[in-house]
């Protein structure tokens, strides 16, 4: 792997490999917590904090963690930081904590965080991993905030609770179907603006998942079965 400059590591996650809009990762919290801008920012920053901390710790431990049990180890590290973030939110932002509800503990299984642990922190120095965490986290937060702003504005006519257009609301955008719709349109606009070059992921598939390589996918299982059959013969 070629050596990248620190700046390119930082900006990589914001635009070129934006985790949600380009790589289509972390769609659950992206859709669920973007109904208003404040929720979106809360979720984005919580996930960023967890991502930076877990990237740093996993990078520090990358030579200690045995390869075979690395995924459970990552999950424990991430879960620890998620619990910390949960405490901080409960103490200082109880409203946001309540609004985000189950999605705060669910940061544990957020594929962006596990994916960065597996794809980056696992192989790179502590400083690089921290920068990567900041970049990816900001990319996620910015995408989430954009979506939150669009949905809050169209849904209630407000931004961050301040009324922009009085007596204007299209309730659809605040509801779950609106989340899918705005995400779809956002991707389409991005595709149209870049003539179809923006999206790295070729549609939704198992291959998107960061666990794809380590997971016993259908193909892997078939290979194992084939090897066994060959042995039996």
């Amino acid at each position: 792997m070629e050596k990248k400059s620190k700046l390119s590591i930082l900006t990589n996650g914001i635009i070129k490999e934006n985790p949600t809009l380009v790589l289509l990762l972390g769609t659950c919290p992206f859709l669920a917590t973007s109904s208003s801008l404040i929720n979106a920012l809360g979720m984005g920053l919580s996930a960023t904090a967890v991502l930076i901390c877990s990237n740093i710790v996993i990078s520090m431990l990358r030579k200690v963690i045995p390869d075979k049990v690395r995924i459970p180890c990552y999950i424990v590290v991430i879960a620890g930081f998620v619990t910390l973030v949960q405490f901080v939110l409960q103490a200082y932002a109880p409203d946001i904590n309540k609004a985000l509800g189950v999605f705060i503990p669910l940061i544990v299984v957020n594929c962006i965080i596990l994916g960065r642990a597996e794809a980056f922190a696992n192989k790179n120095s502590v400083i690089d991993s921290a920068l990567d965490g900041i970049g990816m986290g900001l990319g996620f937060t910015l995408a989430l905030a954009a979506m939150g702003a669009i949905r809050e504005f169209l849904g209630t006519g407000c931004l961050l609770g301040f009324t922009i257009i009085p007596n204007f609301s299209i309730g659809f955008f605040n509801l779950p179907p609106g989340g899918f719709f705005v995400f779809g349109v956002l991707i389409a606009v991005m595709q149209a603006a870049t003539k179809g070059k923006a999206l790295k992921a070729k549609g939704f598939s198992c291959g998107l998942c960061p666990m794809y390589n380590s997971c016993n996918t259908a193909e892997a299982n078939e290979e194992v079965a084939a090897a066994k059959a060959a042995k039996a013969v």
Partner: peptide, 10 residues
């Protein structure tokens, strides 16, 4: 622009 991901989400 809607081909693939966009139309699935819509």
């Amino acid at each position: 622009p809607f081909k693939g991901v966009g139309i699935i989400l819509v």
